[in-house]
């Protein structure tokens, strides 16, 4: 069973994640297999799914969860960066209408509009 969890602030601190960030954990059965977060200062988003669980749509669902949370607090956009050869993340970003804004040292950055 897969669950997308918003950790309490105390748990964020244990995991060394800023209280002020949006954080979502991906839990499958008894294991945490992924993490998504948005830094509310820079609006930079971050997705990670453990390698052996990739290819099952968890990253895509995680991004949609992050987008929902970002919309709830009124963010107009957020950013996602990935390696230029990370086909899967680029495919997900395309689905949510991400727009390419920069490439530097093989890292591609997209802006994802949230108010469309």
């Amino acid at each position: 069973m897969i669950e997308y969890l918003k950790p309490l602030d105390e748990i964020k601190e244990i995991l060394n994640l800023e209280r002020s960030n949006i954080v979502i954990l991906v839990k499958k059965d008894l294991n945490i297999i992924g993490l998504g977060k948005i830094n509310l200062n820079s609006l930079d988003g971050y997705l990670l799914i453990e390698k052996s669980y990739r290819g099952n749509g968890y990253g895509k669902d995680l991004l949609y969860q992050l987008i929902d949370e970002a919309k709830k607090i009124g963010l107009e956009h957020m950013y996602i960066s990935c390696s230029n050869d990370d086909y899967i993340i680029k495919k997900i970003v395309l689905e949510v209408k991400g727009v390419h804004i920069s490439t530097n040292n093989n890292e591609v950055k997209y802006i994802i509009p949230l108010n469309k």
Partner: peptide, 27 residues
């Protein structure tokens, strides 16, 4: 282009599979 590529336009076209010679998929 791999490290610093800027893509700022896109359009719908027809291209032959003969000319599509690969992909970027690091895994």
């Amino acid at each position: 282009i791999a490290d610093y590529g800027i893509h700022d336009s896109e359009k719908d076209e027809e291209v032959s599979v003969a000319d599509i010679i690969g992909y970027n998929f690091f895994e």
